[in-house]
């Protein structure tokens, strides 16, 4: 970081290829570049280990390679997650949760590479994902239950006279789901990366004593990697819970 640069400069979008579609600016930016890298990496990571020909039924072919074990771990992790939260019916939506989790996880992790770009630190990206999840679970709820879906806002066993008060609260809490989902991820990424940059500024400013913030940065980087994982997990588990709500109402 050059001296005097804002710690927020790392979040700046830089168009790499100027593009226009129907008068809209859809330039390929550094954000899009890291989305490309993330997508290609995920697909490669989970596809390549399973591409080797397995025509015979020998033990050698069924014995997983190291990469394959890693890929299987990711697969089983999300598989357990969705089975635990949304039950057997939720298994149908496994690919969606899996894609979301991996996209956010590797977006966050690649953001930890110095000089890279964290697309999950942009509110519009996280909001896009969260809104997508929100629309998906709402449509799913309507498809599964029709207009009975509105009974979701009525807590069963509650006296009638409480309903006028509680229904608006439930509706608001339902509508705030995408916002909380988006802001949680965005704020975590923003705060972590900003903090890292601020301390990085201290390292150069303090000269010899810069070693202290440097040590702190090392620890903080570890914490950020944990948060990268945790936030992807939170996003995925909340998606699972919303799917569960849509499938089973109350």
């Amino acid at each position: 970081m050059a001296k005097g640069e804002s710690p927020l400069k790392q979040f700046e979008i830089q168009p790499l290829v100027e593009l226009n579609l129907f008068g809209q600016n859809i330039s390929f930016t550094n954000s899009s570049l890291w989305m490309t890298i993330t997508t290609i990496f995920i697909l490669a990571f989970f596809t390549i280990p399973f591409l080797k020909s397995k025509k015979t039924n020998s033990v050698e072919d069924l014995y997983p390679s190291r990469l394959q074990v890693a890929a299987e771990m990711g697969f089983n992790f999300i598989n357990n997650l969705i089975t635990d939260t949304a039950g057997k019916e939720g298994r149908k939506y496994f690919p969606l949760v899996f894609s979301l989790f991996m996209f956010i996880l590797f977006g966050n992790l690649f953001g930890m590479i110095p000089y890279s770009f964290t697309f999950t630190s942009h509110i519009i990206v996280t909001f896009g994902l969260a809104l997508g999840v929100f629309i998906f679970v709402t449509v799913l709820g309507f498809i599964k239950h029709g207009f009975k879906f509105f009974s979701f806002f009525v807590i069963p066993g509650l006296p009638i006279y409480m309903l006028p008060l509680l229904i608006p609260i439930e509706v608001i809490s339902y509508l705030s789901r995408p916002i909380s989902l988006a802001v949680r991820l965005f704020a975590n990424m923003l705060a972590g990366h900003t903090l890292l940059k601020v301390f990085a500024g201290f390292v150069s400013a303090l000269g010899f004593f810069g070693i202290l913030p440097l040590v702190f940065i090392v620890a903080l980087t570890g914490l950020e990697i944990l948060i990268a994982f945790l936030q992807a997990y939170v996003f995925a588990i909340l998606t699972c819970l919303y799917i569960n709500d849509a499938l089973h109402l109350h």
Binding site: F28, S31, S32, T39, F46, T47, L51, P95, H122, G128
Partner: peptide
């Protein structure tokens, strides 16, 4: 703000690519 549409567009493109390939190719293989 001028890049909002661009970001959403590319997010959509890559997420859909990821989702489709994972759903119809990678995950069934695994």
């Amino acid at each position: 703000i001028e890049f909002f549409i661009s970001q959403l567009f590319w997010l959509g493109v890559f997420f859909v690519i990821l989702f489709v390939v994972l759903t119809y190719f990678t995950l069934p293989k695994i």
